[in-house]
Structure formats: structure tokens, C-alpha cells
Design a protein around this nucleic acid. Structure first.
Lengths: 206, 206
DNA sequence: CCTTTTATCTTGACACTGTCAAGATGGCTG
DNA sequence: CAGCCATCTTGACAGTGTCAAGATAAAAGG
């Protein structure tokens, strides 16, 4: 009942601002993300965020980093629930990839939307956070692709092919089908597309 | 010499605003695109654009539409310079796709970045323009993919697979390799990736 | 030729944004 | 207890999109 509205020290403002930003984006699209609105939603003055993020781009980067964390976790969950053979593992990760893009479309769009950030204008915490979470996500995909890289070839080639495929596919659903390169009528399920690659494990013969 | 600065009637303000917007975006990134700056660059008062675009989203949509036009033209040029067999035609279109994404990276990123637009807030001219140019682009890809769709299957399946692949690949280069899902070291050329699909024409046997 | 209409642009204003500077608050270390 | 320092507030500024009202000039109609 002691309703002192603001204890002056929020306690965990940085975190609160990130989740406020996520909420705002899910509710009103990317342009609804605003420093002042985040501050208000966190119950804090309009200039408070400046002490945790060196500007709006840094807050955006932190949100993207948070998105990567959720993204990686989704893929891990799907992977854990699948069989252990390489095909099933890769398919599971792709399913997780696409599932995340549907469930958290706003964040997903925002994550892979090319911002002006990534410059050196980010505060160090956010920059390292972003780097860490994004490489963690990529490594999950990388591990799943490794069994399919033909011997004597750069595994990156296979990674990029699969990554391109699933990412491009996920991106197709991000536009409301009215503008942009909207595909014709119905889009086949990804489970019908991945097998077209006819992937073979490199150690299957051994 | 009769330097009357503004003839009050610009003559072709809509067009001038679009190219101004394209320039601004190439120079300073997506966030540098501003109604007022476009107006100033076109030599016009800050509220003039409102008479040609019903708000900033519409101007953005018009710029995207212009991007699609250049995009389609690039693919047509590449296609025209290639051999006439289906493999070469498809490869050429993919090369054009990727070439455009490199040469006009700012616009390319902007085109495929999910905006809040596409809503019904667009003025009719811009909306139909956008729809027209984007479907024209997709049809080019569609035609090139058609020969490879296995009979008795929905050709959309093959289109989407190839589209996903080339689009995802092109997207990989849009981030300055510091943030986002940056791939490891070196990225193989797309000419090494497309053949992995081992595409066969459906009428080759006939 | 003159008048009326209409498209086009200007001016001014408003609320909102990000960002900076300066001060207030309160927990922490010494 | 004193002082420090991270944290937050207040106030201000330039820049933004958007709206309303008026000015301008080209076109249309007699």
C-alpha cells in the first residue's frame, strides 16, 4: 500500500525498457517503438533511458539481441523434441526457425530488418550482447548443417544454402501479401521444400 | 539567367520527391529519408509533398515501387545477355537479383524491409503502382522457374524454393557483418550454390 | 478577353520525437 | 559520518509528420 510511485531507483530499468520496447513493437509495429514511450511504460522520466542506452539505436540493438536469445531458444526446444538423426534435427531447427518467425513476427521482422545500427554508436554492453546472441543463433544452424557438408568442401557453402532457404521462406510471410513481392495464392509448407534438397550425410557411408 | 527560384508549379514534383528520397537513402541510410528533406531537395516548401503523397508511408511505398522497377529491369537485362537454355536463363536472373542487391543496397534493403505501410493508408496512385511493379518483378522469376517445376506439382513450390534461396543469399550481404546473423568468414559465390539444387527441366525428356 | 475553377504550393502552427545539459536523489564505499 | 557515484528528473532545443488556411498560377468556360 505504500504506493510511492517511483523509488527513484528503478532497480532494473534496462531490462524493463527492453520488454517495454518489445511490447510496443508487437502492439503497434516497428514505428511505435519510441524512447519516450518505453520510458513512460517503465514508469520513468523521458530522459532516463539515456543512462542505459546511448541513444535509440542502442535500445533497438538490445531488443534485437533479446530477439536472438528467444530465437535460439525456440530452435533449441524444437531440436530437443525431435529424433536424433541429422535429417530430423535439421528439419526441427528449420521448423523452429519458421515457428519463431510466426509467433514473434514483429520482433523477427525487426531483427532481420537492416538498421542503421551496428555502427560504433552502440554502448559496449549492448554491442557485445548483440554479438553474442546472434552468433549463438548461427551456431545452432551451423551444427545442424555440418553433417550434410560434402567432404573436402567448405561447410559454409552448405550452411549458407540452407540458411538462405529457410530464411527466405520465413521472410515470405512477413509481408501482408498486399505489398512487396507477395507470392501467388498458396505457399507450400516448408516440410515439402526442404526434402527437395535431397541432403545426404557425409558420414553415412562410413 | 532568369533565376526565379521557384516557378510555384514544380512541374513534376512527385517524380522529383521520389528521386530525392532515393538519393537521401543512399547517402544516409533509411532513417535519413524525411519528408522535409525531400521537399527541400526538390526546392519546395516543407508541406508540399502532402499534396502528392498522403503522408510519409506513401512516399516510402512509392520509393519501394520505383525500386521494384529498377529491380525488374536489372533482371531483364541479365536475362537478355544470357544464353537461351533454361538453366542459363535462371542463373542469369539470379545473378541480376544479386547484382541489384549489391549495386543498390540501400533501396534493396528498404524494399524488403517490412514497413508498416501496405495498409490502406496509401493513396491510390501509389498503391496500384506498388502492386504493379512488384508483381512484374515476381513474374520474371516465375517465368524462369517454370521449366523446372516437376509435372503434376504446383509450380509455386519450385518458385518459392528458388526465390527463398536467392533472396536469402542476397540478404546475407545486407548487414555489415558486425551485427545480425553474420555468416562466418567467406561466403561462397552464388554460382556455386545454385547448381546444388541439381535442377532438371520437366520437358527435357520429351 | 475576362472570370471562375481547380490543381498546386506556401505559411504557420501543433504535438511528438531524440538528445543534451544541469540538477536532484539516494545507495554505496571509505 | 562524509563523499562519491550511479541513477533518475527537469527543462530545453532542433527536427519530425501532419493539419488548416491562404496564396498563386495554370487551365477551363463564357
Amino acid at each position: 500500500m505504500t504506493d510511492q510511485p517511483r523509488p527513484h531507483h528503478h532497480g532494473n530499468l534496462r531490462e524493463a525498457l527492453i520488454v517495454a520496447g518489445l511490447e510496443l513493437m508487437e502492439e503497434g509495429g516497428p514505428d511505435a517503438l519510441t524512447l519516450r514511450k518505453c520510458a513512460k511504460r517503465a514508469g520513468v522520466s523521458h530522459a532516463a533511458p539515456a543512462h542505459h542506452f546511448n541513444g535509440l539505436p542502442s535500445l533497438k540493438a538490445a531488443i534485437v539481441a533479446r530477439g536472438y536469445r528467444m530465437f535460439a531458444q525456440t530452435m533449441r526446444d524444437y531440436r530437443a523434441a525431435a529424433k536424433s538423426d541429422p535429417q530430423a534435427q535439421l528439419a526441427a531447427i528449420c521448423d523452429g526457425y519458421i515457428a519463431f518467425s510466426r509467433q514473434h513476427m514483429a520482433v523477427f521482422k525487426f531483427m532481420f530488418q537492416p538498421h542503421d545500427l551496428a555502427n560504433e554508436t552502440l554502448d559496449k554492453t549492448t554491442a557485445t550482447e548483440l554479438k553474442h546472441e546472434s552468433t549463438a543463433s548461427y551456431q545452432i544452424l551451423q551444427q545442424a548443417c555440418a553433417p550434410f557438408a560434402p567432404e573436402k568442401t567448405d561447410p559454409a557453402s552448405m550452411e549458407i544454402m540452407i540458411w538462405s532457404l529457410v530464411h527466405g521462406y520465413a521472410m515470405l510471410f512477413c509481408n501482408p501479401c498486399e505489398n512487396g513481392l507477395s507470392p501467388p495464392q498458396t505457399i507450400p509448407d516448408f516440410s515439402q521444400i526442404l526434402p527437395k534438397l535431397k541432403l545426404k550425410t557425409n558420414s553415412a557411408r562410413k
